[in-house]
Amino acid sequence: MIRKAFLSALGLVAASTANADWALNMPKGVTELSKETYDLHMMVFWWCVAIGIVVFGVMIYSLFAHRKSKGVEPAKFSHSTFAEVTWTAIPCVILLIMAVPAAETMIKAEDSRNPDLSIVVTGYQWKWHYRYQDEDIAFYSSLARPSLEARLPNSGVDVYSVENYLLEVDNPVVVPKGAKVRLLLTSNDVIHSWWVPELAIKKDAVPGIVNETWFQAEEVGTYRGQCTELCGKDHGYMPVVVEVVEPDAYRAWIDTRQDGDTKFASAQ
């Protein structure tokens, strides 16, 4: 019965798969921690599926077998200490099995030792500011112009014609592949949150407080995310773009940036 509802929902989903480039699941990402996070996510998911199959299976069987129209007499039992202890104890064990790897990942994520570079990230309404601690580089990173124009009501621009609509910035953050990048987050006004799914990093930027997090990207590429803490009118329009490049390309970028050329990074 309820399955029917699900099937119809799934049917609709299936029908739209043909012409879409969406994802169904969390990205595995490009850092060791993002892969561990993905594995944790899948582990808990499969546990839920297994528990769901057992519980829903029993329930659906009961819905069909124990109905009045079949002429069954209702049983009289209303208590069973054995059953109740069992279904308290088993979940405890399952939870323990989940908690151990989760705690391990958490401890790893805390280890911010020996960073290769530090970037100060400051949230503004509604853009990000980045400052490379050991280089003489600082810049704002705002929504790229094509998105900025297309997003306005009655802009006349088809948003599908804009590449990476709402997920492109004028000045992306550039970091070298394999480097341990430490981020120091703070905010100038309200609370923002810096998120890149592929890096499995989400950290709040809070005014007056310095937050720390880190990542070590193992693959070259462009990774996109967004502000994830409601920060006012244009909360939906302050994306995060991180470009992970080979170390020598990074050096070259540093040099051009220090010469005042702001265009390198967005050259595709």
């Binding site: 029993v58 009961s62 124990h66 109905r67 009045k68 007499e73 059953a83 308290t88």
Partner: peptide, 17 residues
């Protein structure tokens, strides 16, 4: 979980409509 299991056990071998 105890709550959900108890509901299922209530239905079990009942005479449902």
């Amino acid at each position: 979980g105890v709550k959900v299991f108890n509901w299922v056990a209530t239905m079990w071998r009942g005479a449902m409509t």
